[in-house]
Amino acid sequence: DMFNNLVGLTHLSLIFCRINGTQVSSNVFLPLTSLTYLDLSHNDALEFDYLSLALETISNYTNLKVLNITNIVNPFSRGISVTENFSKSLPRNLEILNASSNALEDLDKGMLLELPKSLKLIDVGSNKFAFLSYLKDLNALENLETLIISGGYAFSLPWYYPPDAYHPKSLKNTLLLDYEKKDYIHQPLPPKLQNLYARNAGMSNYLTKFYFNDSNSLKLLSLDSNNFPVLQGPIFGLNKLENLSLFDCRISFIYPTFFTNLTSLKFLNLSTNYFGNVAFRSNESLFKELGSLTVLDLSFTDIRYISYQAFEGLDMLEILLLQINPFSQFEVDISLCIVYSILT
C-alpha cells in the first residue's frame, strides 16, 4: 500500500535500498499509473523472478519507458539464465532497459522473442554471457538502436558469500538475505600457499575492506592487468606478503588506508596506471606504514605532481622507479630514504 497515494508519480528511484525480492508484493506498482522511469538498481537480493511477479501486473497498461535494474543479482554469483517469463512481464512500451552487472550467462529459448518491440536501448554490460543459441533471435529486436555489452563495471569486494546455487526457475531455493546478521568474509587460503598469480583474470573491483585468515603464508600476490580503479582497503591477514604487483590495473585513486596492514611488503609494483594529479597530492604519505619496502615502481603512471611528504616512511627504500611521468613539479623529501637508484 506504500504507493497508493502517489498516482501522479512519474519517476521513482529505489537504488541501494537492500530490497529483498521475497518481500516484494506482486501489486506494489499497481497504483503508479503515471510512472515513466523506474530505477531498482543495486538491490542484489531482488532477483529477476521476484521482480517479474511485480512487473507483470502492470505490463499491459503502464507507460513505463525506462527500467534500470543494474545489479539486482549478486555479481559474484555463478552465471544465471533469464527466463521467457521475465521478458513477458516487462512493460510493453518500454524503450530503455539497463540490466548490467547481474551475472547473466544465458537467456532461455524464446526470451529475446518476448521482449517489448518498443525497446530502443539495452545495456547488458558487465555480465558473463556465453556464446549460445539464444543469439539466433537477436534480429527479433526490430526497433533496437543501441546494444551495450561492454565490461569493466567495478564493484566493492564482497563482504558475504552469495548463495551456493541460484535457480532462476524456482523461487523456493533463493536465500533470504538478512544483511544485518551477516559478518564480513574471512577468506581462508591454503596454509602453505606462498605465490598467487591472478593476472588478466577479468576482475573488476574497488579494492575495499577485505579479510584473509591471518594464518596464511602468502608472500607473492600478482594481480596485474585487472580493473581496480580505487584502492581503499584496508586488507587484513596478509601479514607475510612481501611482493605485491598491481601493474596495469587502471588504478586512479589510492586511499592511505590501503597499505595500512601490508607492513611486510618489500616489492610494490604500481606501474602503468592513471594517478595523474590526484593520487599523490595529499600531504599524507600513502606508504608511511611500508617501512620494509625496498623497491617501489611508479613508472608510466601519469604522475604530474607529488607532495613533499609522498615517500615519508619508506626508510628502507633502495630502488624508486619514476620514469615516463610528465612531472610539472617535483619537490619530494627523500632525505629519510636510503635510495639506491632513482630512474626518471
Score class of each variant (00 low, 15 high):
Ser87Trp: 06
Phe76His: 05
Asn102Phe: 09
Ile69Asp: 03
Leu113Asp: 04
Thr83Glu: 10
Leu115Met: 04
Leu30Gly: 02
Leu104Phe: 14
Phe76Thr: 14
Met111Glu: 06
Asp123Ile: 03
Asp44Cys: 03
Val24Asp: 02
Ala54Lys: 01
Asp108Gly: 08
Met111Gly: 02
Gly79Thr: 13
Phe29Ile: 04
Tyr37Leu: 00
Leu38Glu: 05
Leu104Thr: 09
Ser81Ala: 13
Glu84Ile: 09
Ile96Phe: 15
Asp49Arg: 07
Asn43Met: 09
Leu107Pro: 08
Asn43Ala: 12
Asp123Asn: 15
Leu113Gly: 03
Leu38Lys: 04
Ala45Val: 03
Gly79His: 08
Asp123Pro: 01
Leu121Arg: 12
Leu94Gln: 02
Tyr61Ser: 10
Ser81Phe: 05
Gly110Lys: 03
Lys65Ser: 08
Ser25Lys: 11
Ser87Tyr: 10
Leu94His: 03
Ser41Arg: 08
Leu55Ile: 03
Leu115Lys: 00
Ile122Thr: 12
Ile72Pro: 03
His42Asp: 14
Asn85Met: 02
Phe76Gly: 04
Ile58Lys: 07
Asp106Val: 08
Gly125Ile: 15
Leu53His: 12
Phe86Ile: 03
Asn27Pro: 00
Met111Asp: 02
Ser26Glu: 14
Asn93Gln: 15
Leu40His: 08
Thr57Trp: 00
Val73Tyr: 12
Ser77Phe: 08
Thr33Lys: 13
Pro91Thr: 00
Lys120Tyr: 09
Lys88Phe: 10
Leu67Ser: 02
Val66Gly: 02
Ile69Phe: 04
Asn68Phe: 13
Leu53Pro: 02
Thr33Met: 13
Phe48Ser: 10
Gly79Asn: 12
Phe48Cys: 07
Ser100Met: 05
Thr83Leu: 04
Ser89Phe: 08
Arg78Thr: 07
Asn85Glu: 09
Val66Ile: 07
Thr36Ala: 04
Ser26Gly: 10
Phe86Met: 13
Glu95Thr: 14
Ser25Arg: 11
Ser34His: 12
Glu47Val: 10
Asp49Val: 09
Leu40Cys: 08
Asn27Val: 03
Ser77Thr: 10
Phe86Asn: 08
Asn68Ile: 07
Arg92Ile: 15
Asn68Ala: 11
Asn74Met: 05
Leu119Lys: 01
Pro116Ile: 04
Thr57Glu: 13
Ile96Asn: 06
Ser26Leu: 00
Leu107Ala: 10
Ser52Pro: 05
Leu38Gly: 05
Leu32Gly: 12
Asp106Trp: 04
Phe48Tyr: 13
Asn127Val: 04
Glu56Val: 12
Ala103Thr: 09
Ala54Phe: 01
Val82Tyr: 08
Ser100Leu: 05
Phe29Gly: 11
Asp44Asn: 12
Leu90Lys: 00
Thr33Arg: 14
Leu119Thr: 01
Asn60Ser: 12
Lys65Tyr: 07
Pro75Val: 11
